[in-house]
Design a protein around this nucleic acid. Sequence first.
DNA 1: GACCATACCGTCTATTCTGGACGATGCAAG
DNA 2: CTTGCATCGTCCAGAATAGACGGTATGGTC
Lengths: 171, 171
Amino acid sequence: MSVPRLTPVSYMVLGLIENAGEATPYQLKAFAAQSVGNFWSIQHAQLYTESERLAKAGLLDEHREEGGRRRRTYALTEAGRAALAEWRAAPATELGELRSLGLLQLFFGAEKGPLARAQLESHGRKLAEYEQLHAAAADWLPEGQRLALEAGIAHEREWLRFWRAVGDNQS
Amino acid sequence: MSVPRLTPVSYMVLGLIENAGEATPYQLKAFAAQSVGNFWSIQHAQLYTESERLAKAGLLDEHREEGGRRRRTYALTEAGRAALAEWRAAPATELGELRSLGLLQLFFGAEKGPLARAQLESHGRKLAEYEQLHAAAADWLPEGQRLALEAGIAHEREWLRFWRAVGDNQS
DNA sequence: GACCATACCGTCTATTCTGGACGATGCAAG
DNA sequence: CTTGCATCGTCCAGAATAGACGGTATGGTC
C-alpha cells in the first residue's frame, strides 16, 4: 500500500487496464504492441513486474486463476483510477527525444548515402503500416489514440523528407 | 581487453572523444549537453562508467592526473578508432521512438486544451533554442552535426503543428 | 490414446541506465 | 583567511532492457 514512484510505464499499465476493464499482463502485451507500444515500447517482462508492483501499491486489484496457468488478472482500484486521473490532469511539459540510431551515426560522420537508404527503407515500411492502421481504425478509435497515431504518421513523413534530403545531396 | 557489448552510448563516447581528440568525462558531459544530448541524452554518471568500461576493453587510452582532482583523460586507441569506423559503416535500420509523455497522456484521454498549451510552450522554447544554435553555428559545424540539428528543428516544427491542431479543434 | 507441433503464457538473470544525493577540490572576491 | 560558487567525481537504490528458459494448453496425426 506504500506508494512507490510512479513512472510513465506505471501510467501506461493503468491506462491500458482502464481501457480493457480488466486484463492479464499477457493481454496487456498484445494491446500495447499494436497501439501505445509504437511510440513507447516496453519489455513484456516489465508488464508482469509493473502490474505486481501496482497491485502491491493498492492501485490494481489482482486475482489469480485457481488451476492451470494460474493467470493473474488485474483491474483498477479506486486508488488506481484516481492516480490515473490525477496524472492526466497535470499536463506534461517534458519533451521526448528522437533517440534515432541513424541520426547518431549521421551526427558522428557516417556516410550519408547508405545510411539514408537504410533509414528510408525502414521509415517507409513503418509509415505504410501506420497508414494502413489509420485507414482501418480511424473512425472507431478513441480520439486520443487516433491523434497519437496521426502524430506517428506525421513524424514518419518528416523522417522520410529528412533522409531523402540527406541522401539527395550526397554521394 | 575482453570486448563487452557495445551500446549506442559506447559509440557516443567514442565519437565524442574522436571529435575532441582527448577529453575527461566531465568535458564529454559539456560537449554532449549542447549537441548530441539534444536527441540522445544520458546521465553524467554514465560517462564516467562508460569511459572506464571502454578503457578496460582497450578501446580507450586512459591517463590520470598526478595531483589534485586526479582527472582521468581518455583518448581513442587504434582498436577504438576501428570499432567506431566499423559501427559507422553499418547503417542502422532501427527506428527511434517518440516517447513523448504528452503524447502518452493524449493517448490515454487527457484533456486536449491544457495539454496542447503546455506542450506548445515547451516545444516552442526548444525550437527557438535550436534555431538560435543553427544561426550561430550552421556554417562551421561538421555536416553530420548540422544535419542532426536540422532534423531536430524539423521535428520540433512538426510537434508545434501537431499540438496546434490538437488545441484548435478542442473545447 | 500416445505423439508432436505450435501457440500461449510466465519467470528469471545479468547487465545497463536513471535520478539524484553526496562530497571533495579549486578559485576568486571581500 | 574565509566564504561562496563553480568545478568535478563517486555512489546507491531502484527501474528498465535483452533475451534465455521453461511450463501449459490445443489440436491434429498416426
